[in-house]
Amino acid sequence: MSKRHLLAIFSNFDEAEAAVKELRGSSIKGFDASQDLVVKSPIEHPEVEEFLGAKPVYVQWFTLVGALAGGLLAFFLISGAQANFFDQIKGGKPVVPFPPNFVLTYEMFILGGVYISVLGFFICAGLPARRSPLYSSKVSEDQIGILVKTDEESAGVLKGIFTKHDALEIQEEAGK
């Protein structure tokens, strides 16, 4: 069954919230609020997460793995290099000295953490993303957009909900 996209633009968060709540409460054929609903906003707005319902974020696991891997890599790379390739006494210190290696381990811990977090961000947020079928530059300015994907025949119902909540504008994908 063919799907089509709708983008409704709202002038503030309250109206958008009301619209989303109604969408989540309703049961429309071919429309699943947890998957087919995307809210676009110009600012980071924690309430969006509240009214959309809890969705997990996995970036912190990337961070943990990245930081640990960075730290371990540093320590073994450095100690390994000192012991295996460059077995030289310097300044009377042991060949594998702890204080300097810990300093470098610490730095690599952070380096790994930051790099892999950013990588995790790109993966989790789906960036770089293909532009979605409907977009309004108003969303990056001051308005809230709700993008929905639904069956052809349910489009009218959704449009009705949007209009009810004072949508400024409703964009529609050209029919297929």
Binding site: G80, A83, N84, G92, K93, V95
Partner: peptide, 19 residues
Amino acid sequence: MSVSNLLENWSEFRHKHPV
């Protein structure tokens, strides 16, 4: 192998000077 070398000769690598 590097890690096993590291572990086997650990005391040698932790050796200080002067001794």
